[in-house]
Design a protein around this nucleic acid. Sequence first.
RNA 1: GGAGAAUUCGCCUAGUGGCCUAUGGCGCCAGCUUGGAAAGUUGGUUGGGUGCAAGCCCUCGGGGGUUCGAAUCCCCCAUUCUCCGCCA
Length: 420
Amino acid sequence: MIDANLLRENPEAIKASQKARGASAELVDQAVAADLAWRKALAEFENLRATQNAKSKLVASASKEERPALIAESQELAASVKQAETLASEKEAELQKIIWQIENVVIDGVPVGGEDDFVVLREEGTKPNFSFEPRDHVSLGELLDVIDIERGAKISGSRFYFLKGWGARLELALMNLALDQAANAGFTALITPTLVKPEVMAGTGFLGSHADEIYYLPADDLYLTGTSEVALAGYHSDEIVDITNGPKRYAGWSTCYRREAGSHGKDTRGILRVHQFNKLEMFSYCNPEDAEAEHQRLLAWQEEMLKKCELPYRVIDTAAGDLGSSAARKYDIEAWVPTQGAFRELTSTSNCTTYQARRLNVRYRKEDGKTATIATLNGTLATTRWLVAILENHQQEDGTVRIPAALRPYLGGAEFIPVA
RNA sequence: GGAGAAUUCGCCUAGUGGCCUAUGGCGCCAGCUUGGAAAGUUGGUUGGGUGCAAGCCCUCGGGGGUUCGAAUCCCCCAUUCUCCGCCA
C-alpha cells in the first residue's frame, strides 16, 4: 500500500510512477477524491459520537427525574451516530479498495519501459568454450540419471520431475551451501509454511495481477505459496520489529508452487519452468532510509553464490513495467545457459520499500520513540533452477559434470557427477 | 470429528452493565538517593486515526448484535490448551 501522506502531499509523484509502470494514473485521482470523502465522513461521525459519549456519561450521574429525558435524547442520537458510522466505514472501504490497487512508487533511476527494456549493469565470469557439442540439462539429466522428467509427468503431469541420486544430492548441497553462507552473514534460518491465509497472500501483493499463477485450496481457503517471501513477510505482521541493531534478516527455505498459467508453450523442455521447486530466500526488514543500501547488500550476497557455483552471469536492472506491484526496484541475476546461448534468470531481488510492510502492518521504532512503517526486501539465494546452469556449464566431453569446489564439501568431497 | 476451558496495555494479572479515563506486579525509561552501583523511592511506560491546533474518535483475540451506555450480556469466527475419537 502506498503512503497516504504521499497521496495527500504529492499525488503527481504517484501518478508518474503509475505511468512508468504502464499502470492506471487515473486511480490516483480517484484515491485523492475518496480520501477527502472519507475524512469528511469520519469527522462527522466522530463529532456525533463525541456528543453521544458526553450525554451517556451524564445519564449515570443524573437524578431520577432527569434521567428519562436524557435517555430519550440519547436514543434519538444513537440512530444518527450509527448512520454516520456506517457512512464513514463505507467511505473508508471505498478508499482502501482504490488505494490497494495502486502499485509501489518506482525509485528514481529505474529504467523506463517493459520486459525488454532492462539495463545490463555488469557481466561477470567466463562463458565456457566447449570443444564438443554440449548437451542440454535434459540430456545430461538422463545420461547421469539425475533428473527424471518422464516419471514426473507420469505421476503429476507436465512441468513435474524427480530429482534422483546425484541430482537430489546436488540440490540439497546447493541449498546447504546457500544456507551456510546466509547463516554466516547473520541471517536467521527459517523453514516456512507453504500454505497461507488469504490476507497474508494479499498483503504481500501476490493476489493482484498474478492471482491466476497461484494454487488455491477452496476447501480450506488457503493458498500455496510460490515463494517463502510470503511467509517471511507475514512473519512479523502486526508487530513492531526491533531493528536498533541493524536489519532483521531471515533465510527462508521452502518448496514453491506455481501454476505457470500464462506460460503455456514457454520453456516446456526440462526443469527451467516447473510447478514445484525448492528455494532459499533472503528476506530483510530494515530502516526505510537504509533500504537501497540493503538492496545492494542482498545483490552482493547473490553474486557471491553465483561465483561459488562458478557460473558466468550478468546483472540486470529491471524496467519499471516489469516490476511486481510491491517492488520499487528489482535486480535479476541471469546465468549463462550454453545450449540456449542465452542468459536465464537465477535470482531476483526486490526492494519493496514500505509498500509491503504497510499492507501487513509491520513497523519499527524510530529514535524519537515513535513508530513508523518498516521497509522489506527479498532476494533469491538458491533455487532448483540453478541445477540447469550448473549441469550445463560444468559438463565434460564424456558427459560427466565437474562439481564446483564450494559444493564439494556438501557432496562427500566428490569432484564429478559420474555417468550412470 | 466430538466435549470443555481460555484469549486484557512487552510478560504475568485484577476486573460480572455507568466511579474502567482498565487494577496490581515484573520488565523497561527518567528523576531523587550514592564516590559509583545495588537496594529504596517518585514519576512515566498499548497502539492507531483525524484535526492548523486545542482536542476528539477508536483500541480488553477479530467481526456482528442488545443497550442511552459493553472488557463485562448474546451470536459468529480465529487461535491456544485439556480430554475423547480417528489417522500418519
